[in-house]
Design a protein around this nucleic acid. Structure first.
Length: 253
DNA sequence: ATGGCGCAGTGGCTGCGA
C-alpha cells in the first residue's frame, strides 16, 4: 500500500497537478490539505475519472481536507470528536483495514499569539483522541501538514522564526510519537536538508531554504511493514506549484 | 527597505499562509 500526503494550497488551482501526480504515481491513498474550497465545489467527477474515491471536508477560502483512495472509504469521520471547531482540518477514513487520519494542523502564526494558543489546544485534543483511536485501530496512519519541524535538522539553519520549531510545538509532536506513532521518514537514511515546504518568496526552493513539516506517522503494526518513505520534489518545480511537496510512504500490506 | 509570493474574496485592496 502506497500512502501519500500533499498540501496543495488550493485544489481548484492545483487540480491539474494532482491529476497528473495521481496518474504518474498511482498511490493507494492520497491525503490532501488546504483545499480552499467548499464541498459543493469539490472536483468529484475529475477525481472519480482518475480512478479514485474521495471523502472531503471543505470550507470557503481556508483549510479543507480530503482523502482520495483507489479502494472504498469506510467509517468516515469529520473533525476531532469533542473538540468544537469551525475550521475544517481533520478527516478520518478506513481503507482496507487501515485507519487513515488526514490533518491540516494550525499554522500558529507567531509564538505567544492567539493562533498559537489555538494550535496548542488543537494539538492537545488531537493527541487525546489519537490515544483512543490507537486502541481501536492497530493499523493507523496520522498524516498531513503538521506545521511542525520536529528537530533542528528539519529546518533550514537560517530559519529565524520561532513558529514551527518552538519547544512547545516540538513537545506536542513528541507527545504524538510518545503514543507509539513513528515518523515514517526517519525510519530510513535520508539526505541532509530534506524538506517538504519552501516559501514562494526569496528563491527559497532554489536555495533549499525550507522546512520538513509534512509528515506520515505510523502505528507500531504499520511501522513494522513500512519499506520506504520519500519526498517528491518534482511537483514543486512545475509552473504555479504548491509550496508543499508530496510525502509518500510504502507499506508492505 | 520587515518586503519579497501566491491564493481567495468581491477587490483595485486586505488577510493569511509558513
Amino acid at each position: 500500500m502506497k500512502i501519500a500526503t500533499w498540501n496543495v494550497n488550493s485544489l481548484k488551482v492545483r487540480l491539474p497537478h494532482v491529476l497528473d501526480w495521481l496518474a504518474a504515481n498511482r498511490p493507494d491513498v492520497l491525503c490532501l490539505q488546504e483545499l480552499k474550497l467548499e464541498d459543493k465545489s469539490f472536483p468529484s467527477a475529475e477525481i472519480e475519472a482518475a480512478g479514485y474515491h474521495a471523502a472531503f471536508s471543505g470550507q470557503k477560502t481556508y483549510n479543507g481536507v480530503a482523502i482520495l483512495s483507489r479502494s472504498a472509504l469506510a467509517g468516515i469521520g469529520h473533525g476531532i470528536p469533542g473538540f468544537d471547531d469551525e475550521q475544517k482540518r481533520v478527516l478520518a477514513a478506513t481503507v482496507n483495514g487501515v485507519r487513515v487520519i488526514c490533518g491540516y494542523f494550525p499554522n500558529g502564526q507567531a509564538v505567544g499569539s492567539e493562533k498559537f494558543a489555538y494550535k496548542l489546544r488543537w494539538l492537545a485534543a488531537l493527541t487525546e483522541w489519537l490515544r483512543e483511536e490507537l486502541k481501536a485501530h492497530q493499523r493507523l496512519v496520522l498524516t498531513g501538514d503538521f506545521n511542525i519541524a520536529p528537530e533542528d535538522r528539519d529546518a533550514h539553519p537560517d530559519w529565524k522564526d520561532e513558529i514551527h520549531v518552538s519547544p512547545a510545538e516540538r513537545a506536542a509532536f513528541a507527545a504524538l510519537t510518545g503514543l507509539g506513532l513513528a515518523d515514517a521518514y526517519r525510519l530510513f537514511p535520508q539526505d541532509d536538508k530534506s524538506f517538504s515546504w519552501w516559501d514562494y518568496r526569496m528563491g527559497a526552493f532554489r536555495r533549499n531554504f525550507g522546512l520538513r513539516i509534512d509528515h506520515i506517522l505510523l502505528s507500531p503494526a504499520l511501522r513494522d511493514v513500512c519499506c520506504a518513505c520519500t519526498i517528491d520534489k518534482a511537483p514543486r518545480k512545475l509552473e504555479r506549484p504548491s509550496d508543499h511537496a508530496p510525502v509518500i510512504a510504502e507499506l508492505e500490506l
